[in-house]
């Protein structure tokens, strides 16, 4: 079947075939302006592209939700986040820091096996002992759960505008600290001990010119990468400042 080439009587399904070759004509035709919508994708300035490339080179690529080093986490959001704010990096304490509470929790699971050796418990009927065991397992669960939550929500975020530290301690206390990239004066890090050296985690110290002049991130993975990223962000900020 021959398709019409006349744009005034063109069928809607003809457009898909025509659009690629006749875009200029369609846009110029006042009748077809309403039918054809051309998407305009804003071009990123080259400096941003370069910067994204640099970030990729520095940080690499991890997307696992339980990772202690999340790069460009698309799903992660925080309440204080601005609309245009992009999270470059979300860091939790290194997973190896969880090993102590994890082992304690495993040990706690086996404690009820030793209840029979506590002779004073034999005084109680079986229902009492059962409820005691249930209570013990609830305590074990909540101990592990609380430790996990404290780790999971202990976040250090690097965005295109600022660095953010979010902590929840013992489920009851929330701590939020932030510093704009522009007020960061100095960044340093330290790796201590055998575990820190072996698993490459340490403390990142950020000196700022704001009222709260220090932000500290303890036990974060890859502190060198974080320092490099912050340096790049500061350079970008300065470069943009000069261009303005």
């Amino acid at each position: 079947m021959t398709r019409s080439k006349d744009l005034d009587i063109i069928a809607p399904d003809d457009l898909s075939a025509e659009v690629s070759t006749k875009v200029d004509e369609v846009v110029q035709s006042p009748k077809k302006k309403n039918i054809v919508k051309t998407k305009t994708i804003p071009e990123k300035p080259p400096i941003v592209d370069d910067f994204n490339q640099k970030i990729h080179e520095i940080l690499g690529h991890t997307k696992h939700p339980f990772s202690s080093f999340l790069i460009h986490p698309k799903i992660l959001k925080f309440t204080e986040q601005d609309d245009h704010e992009i999270i470059y990096l979300a860091v939790r304490p290194h997973w190896i820091t969880n090993i102590s509470w994890f082992l304690i929790s495993i040990a706690m699971l086996f404690v009820p096996l030793f209840f029979k050796y506590f002779t004073f418990l034999n005084v109680f009927p079986i229902q009492y002992r059962f409820s005691l065991v249930l209570f013990w397992y609830l305590i074990t669960f909540i101990f592990a759960f609380e430790k996990f939550l404290t780790w999971y929500f202990d976040l250090f975020l690097v965005t295109n505008e600022r660095v953010v530290d979010i902590d929840f301690n013992n489920l009851l206390n929330k701590h939020f600290a932030e510093a704009d990239i522009s007020v960061i004066q100095d960044v340093s890090f330290s790796i201590k001990g055998i575990l820190g050296t072996f698993f490459n985690f340490g403390t990142v110290l950020i000196q700022t010119a704001s009222e709260k002049n220090q932000i500290i991130f303890d036990n974060v993975a890859n502190p060198q990468k974080i320092m490099r990223l912050l340096k790049e962000l500061r350079d970008l900020e300065e470069h943009q400042g000069e261009n303005l």
């Binding site: 925080f78 309440t79 939550l149 979010i166 009851l172 929330k174």
Partner: peptide, 12 residues
């Protein structure tokens, strides 16, 4: 608290 934490930092 877990609900509040989840609202504060949302993740999948």
């Amino acid at each position: 608290q877990v609900t509040s934490m989840s609202r504060s930092v949302s993740d999948k």
